[in-house]
Structure formats: C-alpha cells, structure tokens
Design a protein around this nucleic acid. Sequence first.
DNA 1: CAGACTTATTTGTTTTTTACAAATAACAAA
DNA 2: TTTGTTATTTGTAAAAAACAAATAAGTCTG
Lengths: 219, 219
Amino acid sequence: MEPAYPQPLVMVDTALFTIRDERLRLILTRRKEPPFEGLLALPGGFVHAQEDADAEAAARRVIRGKIGFDAPYLEQLFTFSGVARDPRGWSVSVVYYALIPWSLLERNPSAEAFPVDGLPPLPFDHQQIVAKAVERLRGKATYSSLPAFLLPVEFTMNDLHRIYEQTIGTRLDKASFRHKILELDIIEEIPNRFRTGAHRPAQLYRLSSKVLTPFERKI
Amino acid sequence: MEPAYPQPLVMVDTALFTIRDERLRLILTRRKEPPFEGLLALPGGFVHAQEDADAEAAARRVIRGKIGFDAPYLEQLFTFSGVARDPRGWSVSVVYYALIPWSLLERNPSAEAFPVDGLPPLPFDHQQIVAKAVERLRGKATYSSLPAFLLPVEFTMNDLHRIYEQTIGTRLDKASFRHKILELDIIEEIPNRFRTGAHRPAQLYRLSSKVLTPFERKI
DNA sequence: CAGACTTATTTGTTTTTTACAAATAACAAA
DNA sequence: TTTGTTATTTGTAAAAAACAAATAAGTCTG
C-alpha cells in the first residue's frame, strides 16, 4: 500500500540566535547556489537519508557546517510546507532554532550576525520563519532559563539580567530578578571568581550543573 | 541544483483530544491497511500535493474524514522523522493536535475515545507522539485559554474549573481560579442563562467573542 | 411548607510574591 | 581621602494567591 503520489523535497532550515552589542541577532549565510544565489538567507540544506538519522541530525550537520561546532541549545521550531514557498516546487522544511553565545562565534568570519529588528529582505518564506522563531524565543524566555544559553559559561548577574531584558523586550526589576533567578536554582556562584573593573567587582555565576537543558518555570 | 537523493514519505498524524467522564481522552482509529492493519492508531494519512495546500490542510482533511467537521482548535505539535519509525522506510510525519468538545463527538460512532493514561499499545512511534502531545497540552493549559476549547459553547464556571484541573493535573483554588479567569476576560456571562439542577443554578458562560484563538497569559 | 441537602458564589484573612525605592558595599581613579 | 561608578542588599508598599469559611439559591423530603 505504497502511495502513488510524488513526494516533496524535505529540507531543514535553522534560525541561529546570538547576542552582540546588546542586540539580539540572527546568523545569515550568503547562498552559493540558485535559487536566490548570492542572497542572504537562513542556513539550511536537504535532509539526506544516508547521512542523517532524522531531521534534527540534519540540522546539527548544517549548524556544524556553518559555525564549526554544535549549538549549546537546539530545539525544533516548526515545519513549513507548501508548493509556493520554494520555486523548485513542493517542499517541506523542518525548522530548528538554536542559541549560541557570541563568544563562541566572534572568531568565525563566516558567521555574520544581523539584528533581528533590522534584517535584510530574505528569500523563500524565511521572513515568516524568523518571525515565528523570535516569537517562540520571547515567549519561552519569560518562564525558562533559555536566555542563559546566549551567554558564555561565566557571567555576572547583570549580564544575565540584561540578556533577559533584551530577549523579552521589557524592563525587569533588578532586585526581584535576582531573587527569582536564585530561587529557581538554575545558576550557581563560582566560588571566589569575580569580574573586576573600575568599580565594585561582580560575582561570577555559571549555569547550575543540573541545568543542562533549559528550565521551564516562571522567571 | 535538484537533489539527487531519494525523498522520504511525508505524512500527517493527529492527536485529537477530548474530555468525557472527567477524563482526558484521545481519539484512536482502527487501521484498515498494512502495516499494523487492525490495530488502533492515531488518525493520519499522506500529504497529497493535489489535495492539500500544505501539511495543515492535510491534517484538517484527515480530521474531517474522521469526525466529519473541523476541530475548534488545531495546532502543529512536532515533526517526527527517521528511517525506523515506519516499516515502509524513511518517513517524515508532521503531527498536529486538536481539541474537540465531547458534545460534538458523542453521536459519531467511529470516534472512540481512550483515556490518555490507559491507552492500548500503539504502532509506529505513536506512543512517543502521544507523550509529546500530552506534555504540550498540559504545558500550555497553565497559561492560556486552551482547555476552554474542550468544552461546548455554553459552560459553567465549575465546568471550566474542572477542565483546567484535569488537563493540568493539579488542584486549583476555586476562588482564585474564578478571579483570574474573569480578569483575563477570556469568557463572558451569557445574560440570564443558568444551568439548573437539584441545587443552586449556575451561571452559564461562553468564550469571549474576541477570543477565537487561545489566549496566552498565565491562568 | 419547613427544614435538610447540595452546589454556586462571595467574603475575609493570611501568606507569598512582586514592585518600587533607597541604602550600603567595593573597588579605581583623581 | 574623596569621588565616581557599578554591585548588592534591605526595607516597605502593593498586588496576587492560597486557604478557610460564610452566604446564596435552588430542589427534595418528610
């Protein structure tokens, strides 16, 4: 009882988030092949039965090819499908989004990061994909440890506070934020480690060892 | 630059939730064809380029075929893929979940609803799909109007309260629940309509006219 | 028809959380 | 030593939630 119907092209696309200069950004890549050769677009590729166990493995392969390593946080976003989204015809794209600290990217010249609120025009339905990815990230940021995955392993309370404000897009009370985040036990002090500057040194923190995967509770 | 690779089978599966006898249930269908002919499974089918604009349209088609009308609430859940999930080979399944009041189903003899915590063994990776669907539903129930879509258009505050408790799985304070739900403005009184019984009549409510799509704020 | 009974709805109080405002701490540079 | 600047803590007010119980509105029973 095999279907006699033609099957669509199956691909993956990725929305790779990072934060640089206090702004939430996406990594775009310049397309080397038609269609839309030369344009900036989300990194993506076909799912290959030989190389990939599944769509997530394909996404990881695409990301490794782009930035050279695995993303600290990766999650399936949504699957886009239809005949109109790709000029080559009927297609299905399983889209993943990932969070990557800028510190891991800055020495990679192929990783160009564009502010999410000032992206160039994007081909295919990538505009729509980006909108959905940003919406998901903002939504989850409110009640999880997700934003912490945009930071390097060591960070101060203020770093974390700013990252949350940027991804959520609203102001958060300093004292309350501190309270809640510590209560949730998602981060821990690094003993005797401080960031020094021209001012009072700031305690350095890291993600709590139990929290490898994001914590879903209200921030 | 067409890919020379074989493309997988692309299908949709659906997790159709309802509540009957105070229990959260899923609609299963008996498979009429191999593989797993005769077994109970999630309703599903292939995505057909000719009939469906996209995967969501295919899901709606499957649901209409199963229950005879569109589901009041439909959302994409997740896409499952791989070579092992279907004995026919490499496949991709875009899974949707839907919420349907039992009152719309009870006269449909083909709609058999099984409690989610007492399902028969399911073929393919449907066990895994169900787990993810339940998780999503429970997660969203906490901070949205989702559970209201499991009720008929007219319901009492107690109906709603019970539905929330059942989908979330925890006890909720009656007074607080009432407060919050009314504050959120997702439901409205139906003037002069009450459910009468052997006791004090209960005010009837309906989803607020603005809320056609679920409201995402903390309950 | 007067309770008794049962469910609906409201009220009050306590506890917890959050917001807002300000004080204190720790350092570097002047 | 004083000033500047950021980090961290503290205190108080306001809001939300949990808990407990009273009141309301009907039906049913004797």
